[in-house]
């Protein structure tokens, strides 16, 4: 009996995460957002196909007509400041408030589980989305680029080329970098989501904070504040496109995001564990 119980408790968190992920990725809204993200490289690819000789534009844009694989990098650069925080804000802002607004949070907490565990599972699902989102952008970019343009070995920022295997490794690293970049924002969204029963409010607040952080980061008068802003290292992913790879910005970014996850995770715990759940 005791054995059954231990395996039971061991399995339950994973089962909870599985059902949460099922819930997230069965929603039509999640797929609509991923489709919108995939549309970014499609638009870039089509635009460059029809007007190939752009003089200026986002980084990597001019390289596209020579090498279609650059569609993926251009799309990621364009998505990082706006589209990715937007979609992550929607997912993270919905975590607790979405259940509360549907009146299901009560039942979730009645089930044999703790509020901490509910919080962890909700956050883990948001983190999985933060991985899926940049992955979709890159994969769609590669597909569109290969379809519309000639492809060849990719020239890195340092002027050296990598073959297909090297390119795959770099893309995987980029996904990791961008996903880690979005963890802090996800934690903020999770906390805001515990404050309200109106999910749209938490989503909007999260997205506004992402924009505000980037605006503060662009004001030179506030340079003492910049290293503490969660968006400060968002563009550092380009350091993975150098040879040899620069790890400094990834380390700084990971430490910073860890701080945000710890702070807002603790705040979310404080709020959810002391809150009277009425809905």
């Amino acid at each position: 009996m005791s054995q059954a119980e231990t395996t039971g408790t061991r399995v339950r968190p994973l089962a909870l995460l599985g059902s949460e992920l099922g819930l997230l990725f069965r929603r039509r809204r999640t797929w609509a957002m991923l489709a919108a993200l995939a549309l970014v490289p499609v638009l870039i690819g089509v635009a460059v196909r029809f007007r190939p000789n752009a003089e200026s534009g986002p980084p990597f844009l001019t390289a596209i007509s020579e090498n279609g694989l650059f569609v993926s990098f251009t799309a990621l650069t364009v998505s990082v400041p706006l589209f990715l925080p937007l979609t992550v804000g929607v997912v993270a802002g919905d975590t607790i408030a979405g259940e509360a607004s549907l009146g299901t949070l009560r039942y979730l907490l009645v089930a044999p589980t703790t509020r901490v565990r509910v919080l962890l599972v909700k956050y883990a699902a948001a983190a999985v989305f933060a991985i899926a989102a940049p992955l979709v952008v890159l994969l769609a970019g590669i597909a569109v680029g290969a379809l519309l343009f000639p492809i060849r070995d990719v020239t890195l920022l340092s002027g050296v080329t990598v073959d297909a295997g090297g390119f795959a490794v770099r893309c995987a690293l980029l996904v990791v970098y961008v996903a880690v970049s979005l963890l802090g924002l996800s934690a903020i969204g999770l906390f805001l989501s515990t404050l309200t029963t109106v999910p749209v409010g938490a989503m909007a607040a999260t997205i506004v904070l992402a924009a505000a952080s980037q605006i503060l980061d662009s004001l030179p008068q506030l340079d003492w504040l910049h290293p503490w802003l969660f968006s400060h290292w968002w563009f550092g992913f380009a350091d993975f496109l150098r040879e040899p790879i620069v790890w400094d910005s990834f380390q700084s970014n990971a430490l910073l995001q860890l701080g945000y996850v710890a702070l807002f995770g603790a705040l979310a715990y404080g709020r959810l564990s002391t809150k009277d759940i009425l809905t």
Binding site: P59, F60, T62, A63, T77, T155, L157, S158, G159, F235, A238, D239, R242, V246
Partner: peptide
């Protein structure tokens, strides 16, 4: 010397009498 710009890089490479300069923005 690799000048680490935001989303770009400028390189200066010297090997004996051979000197290369590379600008990633213009390729």
């Amino acid at each position: 010397v690799q000048l680490l710009d935001r989303l770009a890089e400028r390189d200066l490479i010297r090997n004996g009498s051979e000197v290369w300069a590379y600008d990633s923005k213009r390729d």
